[in-house]
Structures are given as C-alpha cells and as structure tokens.
Design a protein around this nucleic acid. Structure first.
Length: 424
RNA sequence: GGAGAGAUGGCAGAGUGGUUGAAUGCACCGGUCUUGAAAACCGGCAUGGGUUUACGCCCAUCCAGGGUUCGAAUCCCUGUCUCUCCGCCA
C-alpha cells in the first residue's frame, strides 16, 4: 500500500518506480480517483453537517414540547441524498484501494535493472566447491533407501516426499541447528506460530489479494495455510504502535510452508526441490525506518552464517528489478551449490519490505515523548529453507566410495554423534 | 456441538435514544509551591480524514459491517474476539 499524499506530491517518482517493474504509468488513474473521492467527501460532509444541525434543533424543539414535523421531513430528504453520496464515495474508495493494493513495492535505487533471474547481480561467493558434480539427492537418497517419492505420491500425489530414518533425523537436526544458531547467536526470539491464517494477515504481508492462487485454502473455515512463517511473524506487529526503544524486534520460527506451485507446472519436477509442503526456519525483523538497511545486511549475514557453519558453498546475489518480489524493496538471494545440478540454487531469500507491509498492516512506532507515529520497516529472510539445505548436504557430503552421506560437523550433536548416513 | 456473559480513550471504569467525542480515577505532559523531590493545587491530554495561507471550521470513529430512527455508544441483524458452564477431544 502507498501513501496517497506522497503520490499526490510526487507522482513521477511512483510512475518511474513502477516502470522499473514493467508497469505502465498508474498515477493519473490513481489521482483521478483520489480527486473524485475527495470532492465527493467534501460535499458529503457538508450534507452530514446540515443533517446533524437540523437533528439537534429537532431535539431542542421536542424537549420544549413543540412540533417538529416540518424539520423532520426536511432531514428525511437530506438523508436520501446522503445515502446516495455515501454509496458513490464508498465505490470510488474501493476502486482506489483495489488499485493501490495490487501495485508492487517501489524498488531501491541500488536494485539493478533487469528482466529475470539472468540479470541478478552476484554480490559475493563463499566456500570451496569440493564436489563440482555428482549424483543428485534423488539418486543418493533412493539408493540409501531413505528418500521415498513413490510412497509419498501414493497418499498425496506429486510434489511430496517421504523421508525415513536418519534422513528424517537429519532434516530435524538441520532445523534445530538453524533455530539454535539464530536464537543463541543472532538475537532472534523463537516463536511458535499459527500455520493457518485469515485473509487480513495475508493482505498485510502482500500475498493477497493478488496471489491467492499460490496458496492452499480451507474453504469451510476461511483459513489459508501459510506459504511461509513470514506471514504470522510479521503480523505480530499488525495494528500495533510499538515504542521505538523496543526496536529492532527479531523473530524466528520453524514451520512447515504450504504452496500450491500453481504457476510452476513442469518446473523442478524431479526430487524434493519444489514441494507443496516443506520446512523452513524464517527470520523476521521490525525496525525504525532509518535502521532497515543495516538490518537487511545483518539478516543476510545471519542466513549466510548457517551455511558457512555447514560448510556449504554458496553465492549471494541481489535480485534485479524483474525478479524482485511484489512486497520487497530489495532482495538478496543466497544460492547453494548443488553438485547434482552443477549449479547454484536458491536456499534463502532475504528481503527488505520497507514500509510496504507496515502500511498494509498499520504497524507503527513512536519515539519516547513524541506524539507522532511512523510506519515501521519490516524485513524477512529464510534462515534457511530446511528441505533445500538437506538436499545440499546430501549432494555435497556424498561419499562415492560407499554411497553414504557424511554428517556435517555442526549437525553431529543433533544426531547423537553419528558420523555418516549409510544404507541400513 | 449446546447455553450464557461481554468488547467504551494508554489503562481502569461510568454511561441503555437527543449539546456524550464520551463522567470519574490512574498514567502522561505543562505550571504553582519547594533548596531539591514528593504531596497538594491549577491547566492540558484520543485517532483518522476533509477544508483553510493561517487561527480555525467540519466529518467520521465507543470491536467490525449492515439496519431501524429526524437523531444511535445506547435499539435490531451478521461477523470477529474474550470469558463462564455443559458435551466432545490432542
């Protein structure tokens, strides 16, 4: 959502911003609606003032025991006009809101222009690629008898996975390791959050109204399954005015994520890279407006740290204008090396949403002693996707001599000291 | 699933159709007093929007959305949330 006054004052900035996302100019339509609405509002309020005035007089006349029939009829007529005008005003207001809420965030100046992921700019690379190529997690996992797509498909269809034994345990170990690192070393507060949310929560973070088809919904109760715990974690501050002393707030959660993958038919169909359901440890930050860029860099470091501790080679890119998501002002993706694909694949996405979500959620902050409030800035980042981390470990820690998978050093404490996953 | 109670300003808590945007207390801000502080006393203190060069004026908001009425915090309907009791249940 956007500040209509800012659009009034600097329409060019917004049109140029949206042009970077490939959109045609929007502000003339926005401002046309805005002007219409305001002039309607003004005349509506004049009528309301007259109605209030007359009604007050009727009250006085009646109190004195007089006859107010004439005045009552007069107000009755005004009332009809008000009703008509209210409806028109509401309609235009809705049109305006619908238009504004379907427009993406304005990109940061430091976001490179580009059409798609080909144009993302690499920021840096980390780690030695010890296994440039090799079997993928499907071959390794199935040979070990610990990853089973067929059985999962039997009960749930495509894009689901069944993990067994030490493979299931390693998934759990990864999530524990991520959570512990973020809570104990990075200052995040662990949250256990609702996985089903209502429309308004998804509107707040920007998934609705535009991206309903990407989500699973329970039509009976009206709940949506979260596509990421960014939704519940960010909505913690919805409708709140927080003291600026309490900022930054840093939340983390380990949750399943549910995605319909409606637009990605045929994409990444092999293996467990793209599933309808996967686990993720998420980080969310809430800051004052002046601190979000620093927080963004910090959050990126937090996500990179867990990959470094796992000794997984990765590269970090800043997404170009065409690849940056709807609600983000700027996004870093961390891509981990997958020997099975001989390429880097996304394992984390770290975004600064600026005040975009805060406006939609009405999440504000106030400095001590101040009267005025400001919208907070919100950030979110995967820290990191557990399923994809598991893939990365399987493929990078593969031992061709026996088909096993070494357990990364930092995961051993979470796996009872196990050194290696082997065929059982 | 059944029965009932409730939602009012930062908080507590009045108000059941006519100057109620809302008593009172607490908190908060300013002042008087004091060497200083406390106490006491005096004054101020909701939010969003429209309009205005400005002072200001106006509109909306007592959980949300509809309705009744000349007029709604107050009456009616729907939804959301909270609480109590019964049933069921991880």
């Amino acid at each position: 959502m956007f500040d209509i006054r800012a659009i009034r004052n600097n329409p060019d900035i917004f049109d140029k911003g949206w042009a970077r996302r490939g959109l045609s100019p929007q502000t003339s339509e926005i401002l046309g609606l805005d002007e219409k609405r305001r002039s309607l509002q003004t005349s509506l309020q004049e009528l309301q003032a007259r109605r209030n005035d007359e009604s007050k007089k009727i009250g006085e006349i009646k109190k004195d025991g007089g006859d107010a029939t004439g005045q009552m009829q007069a107000v009755s007529i005004i009332k009809n006009d008000i009703a008509k005008m209210e409806e028109e005003e509401r309609k235009i207001g809705n049109d305006l809101t619908t238009l504004l809420s379907s427009l993406p965030n304005i990109l940061g100046d430091d976001v490179p222009d580009g059409a798609d992921e080909e144009d993302n700019k690499e920021v840096h690379r980390w780690g030695d690629v010890k296994r440039p190529s090799g079997p993928d997690h499907v071959d390794i996992g199935e040979a070990l008898g610990l990853i089973d797509f067929e059985t999962a498909a039997k009960m749930s269809g495509a894009r689901f996975t069944l993990l067994k034994g030490d493979m299931a345990r390693m998934e759990r170990a990864l999530s524990q390791f991520f959570l512990d690192t973020h809570t104990q070393e990075h200052g995040y507060t662990e949250m256990s959050v609702p996985l089903l949310v209502r429309d308004n929560a998804l509107y707040g973070t920007g998934q609705l109204p535009k991206f309903a088809e990407d989500l699973f919904k329970d039509h009976e109760m009206g709940h949506w399954m979260i596509p990421t715990s960014e939704v519940p974690l960010t909505n913690i501050v919805a409708e709140m005015i927080v003291d600026e002393e309490e900022l930054p707030m840093r939340f983390t959660a380990f949750t399943p994520c549910f995605r319909s993958e409606a637009g990605s038919a045929g994409k990444d169909t092999r293996g467990m890279l793209r599933q309808h359901q996967f686990y993720k440890v998420e980080m969310v930050g809430v800051t004052t407006p002046d601190k979000s860029e620093d927080e963004h860099e910090r959050m990126l470091t937090c996500a990179e740290t867990v990959l470094k501790k796992l000794d997984l080679p990765f590269r970090t890119v800043v997404l170009c204008s065409g690849d940056t998501g709807f609600g983000a002002r700027k996004t870093y993706d961390i891509e981990v090396w997958l020997p099975g694909q001989e390429t880097y694949r996304e394992i984390s996405s770290v975004s600064n949403c600026w005040d975009f979500q805060a406006r939609r959620m009405n999440a504000r902050c106030r400095a001590k002693g101040e009267k005025d409030t400001r919208f907070v800035h919100t950030l979110n980042g995967s820290g990191v996707a557990v399923g994809r981390a598991l893939i990365a470990v399987i493929e990078n820690y593969y031992d061709p001599s026996d088909g096993g998978v070494f357990v990364p050093e930092v995961l051993k404490p979470y796996m009872g000291g196990l050194e290696k996953i082997v065929k059982g």
